[in-house]
């Protein structure tokens, strides 16, 4: 097996193993219901994490994701409350806004040669600020179309349901995998992660690719915001705080190197599942407090970093000199 699949394999194995352990303790966890809920509850995070995967593969980072999700939710709530436009039109409008927002950050990162960390941090302030300006209250969304969308689901044997948003997340992952591995854009993303200067010399359109990567992340953050507003039926400017951190964690647990250039979109899905599994387990247990989630995820993150470190060290025993 090629060494680059090792982290992904390890992620999958850990997921299967921990799922098996959970089931051993609580046999009820082996049901399509649990799986369906896992998909639904993590749909918005998963969609945002796909965008984050592309950003991280290219060697960047996007801290604005959570704020953009909140902005999207508030925007939809305000628009649907105060105007009579159809939610679908509002969806299109907000996706256009978030995509443009991402593209703008990409353009600043590339053209002003500023670190992505700082630019997207400013973007986070800006998006959160826009959400505040729209409304500082939590606004419920009561549009009938929302109820329709929420009632759509695909019934699994065993009583589980794949809801619209859960299915949408799987679809986004499928498209993400295809884009990453079967398009020139995807290869260019990996190329940027391998080294911007070299990629440029090899003719990769660095400016265009960078802008598209952040635009994609903006688009998916917007989509994630729509999903989040469907999930919560509300828009609140203080919502989704720290989602970017969860997304980054999922990406790293999924076996993608934070330095860029190496990793898989599919791994991120498993990373999402692992995080979801921990939460589900704690819910099932009932006696554990919620902070154990954070500590466990932190430990898991640590374990994965060590694992990746070990793999890298094994593959290159010691640097070869002349």
């Amino acid at each position: 097996m090629k060494q680059k699949y090792l982290p992904l394999t390890a992620t999958i194995l850990i997921f299967l193993l921990s799922y098996a352990l959970c089931v051993a303790q609580y046999p009820n966890m082996l049901s399509t219901r649990v799986i369906g809920n896992l998909l639904t509850d993590n749909a918005f995070l998963g969609i945002a994490a796909v965008g984050m995967t592309f950003v991280i593969l290219s060697g960047g980072i996007d801290l604005s994701v959570g704020a953009v999700i909140a902005f999207t939710g508030v925007f939809l709530a305000v628009v649907l409350e105060q105007t009579s436009i159809h939610p679908l039109a509002a969806f299109a409008l907000v996706l256009a806004i978030t995509t443009l927002f991402g593209a703008l950050m990409g353009a600043i990162i590339h053209h002003l040669e500023m670190p992505a960390f700082i630019v997207t941090l400013a973007g986070m302030f800006l998006a959160r600020g826009m959400a505040f300006v729209l409304s500082i209250d939590s606004i419920p969304i009561k549009h009938p179309f929302y109820a329709t969308l929420k009632s759509l689901y695909f019934k699994l044997p065993g009583g589980g349901r794949i809801t619209l948003i859960g299915g949408l997340m799987l679809l986004v992952f499928a498209v993400g995998i295809l884009v990453a591995h079967r398009t020139r854009f995807g290869t260019n993303v990996y190329a940027l992660g391998g080294g911007t200067a070299t990629a440029k010399l090899m003719g990769v359109p660095v400016a265009g690719t960078t802008i598209r990567i952040y635009a994609l992340s903006g688009l998916l953050a917007g989509l994630s915001g729509i999903v989040f507003s469907l999930y919560t039926s509300a828009g609140y400017s203080l919502a989704a705080v720290g989602v970017e951190l969860d997304a980054i964690t999922a990406v790293v647990i999924g076996g993608t190197l934070l330095t860029g250039g190496s990793g898989f979109v599919a791994g991120t899905l498993v990373g999402i599942f692992i995080q979801g599994l921990i939460q589900t387990y704690i819910t099932f247990d009932g006696t554990l407090s919620s902070w154990w989630t954070k500590i466990l995820i932190g430990l898991l993150l640590f374990a994965f970093i060590l694992l990746q470190k070990g793999i890298i060290r094994l593959s290159r025993p010691e640097r070869q000199h002349a």
Partner: peptide
């Protein structure tokens, strides 16, 4: 210095 991308 080889100007190719080692991760591709």
């Amino acid at each position: 210095e080889v100007n190719l991308l080692p991760n591709l």
